[in-house]
Amino acid sequence: TTVVVGNKKYTFDNPEAAEKFAKKVAKKLGATVHKTNGTFKVK
């Protein structure tokens, strides 16, 4: 599962961990999490 934050990509074996990370980053940046085909995008 990939999490994309700006131009950085983070890969997780565990989708739950990926989602948690994405939400944490989004909260910090005041952004939102978008899920597309198993990829979480923070923007």
Score class of each variant (00 low, 15 high):
residue 5 V to K: 01
residue 35 K to Y: 15
residue 33 V to E: 01
residue 16 E to D: 11
residue 9 K to H: 12
residue 10 Y to L: 04
residue 5 V to T: 03
residue 2 T to L: 14
residue 39 T to I: 15
residue 27 K to W: 08
residue 12 F to N: 00
residue 17 A to S: 10
residue 1 T to Q: 06
residue 14 N to G: 07
residue 42 V to E: 03
residue 24 K to D: 09
residue 32 T to F: 07
residue 12 F to A: 00
residue 9 K to Q: 10
residue 19 E to Y: 15
residue 30 G to S: 06
residue 23 K to F: 15
residue 7 N to H: 12
residue 32 T to H: 07
residue 38 G to E: 05
residue 11 T to M: 13
residue 25 V to F: 04
residue 13 D to R: 13
residue 42 V to P: 03
residue 30 G to T: 03
residue 10 Y to N: 01
residue 36 T to V: 15
residue 6 G to P: 01
residue 25 V to Y: 04
residue 24 K to Q: 10
residue 41 K to H: 15
residue 17 A to F: 08
residue 27 K to Y: 09
residue 27 K to G: 06
residue 26 A to T: 02
residue 20 K to V: 10
residue 34 H to P: 01
residue 43 K to H: 12
residue 23 K to D: 08
residue 39 T to A: 13
residue 36 T to L: 12
residue 41 K to V: 15
residue 39 T to Y: 14
residue 16 E to H: 12
residue 29 L to G: 03
residue 29 L to C: 05
residue 25 V to H: 03
residue 42 V to S: 02
residue 30 G to H: 07
residue 28 K to E: 08
residue 22 A to Q: 00
residue 10 Y to H: 03
residue 27 K to F: 10
residue 38 G to H: 06
residue 6 G to T: 03
residue 8 K to M: 11
residue 27 K to P: 01
residue 5 V to Y: 04
residue 25 V to W: 11
residue 18 A to H: 00
residue 18 A to Y: 01
residue 21 F to I: 01
residue 29 L to Q: 04
residue 9 K to D: 04
residue 2 T to N: 10
residue 34 H to Y: 14
residue 14 N to I: 06
residue 38 G to N: 09
residue 7 N to L: 11
residue 1 T to Y: 14
residue 21 F to D: 00
residue 3 V to D: 00
residue 34 H to V: 15
residue 4 V to F: 14
residue 9 K to Y: 11
residue 7 N to Y: 13
residue 20 K to Q: 11
residue 15 P to M: 11
residue 14 N to F: 07
residue 15 P to C: 11
residue 31 A to I: 05
residue 18 A to D: 00
residue 37 N to W: 04
residue 16 E to W: 13
residue 10 Y to F: 12
residue 37 N to S: 05
residue 14 N to S: 11
residue 32 T to W: 05
residue 6 G to E: 04
residue 24 K to L: 12
residue 20 K to G: 07
residue 39 T to H: 15
residue 19 E to G: 06
residue 41 K to L: 15
residue 33 V to P: 02
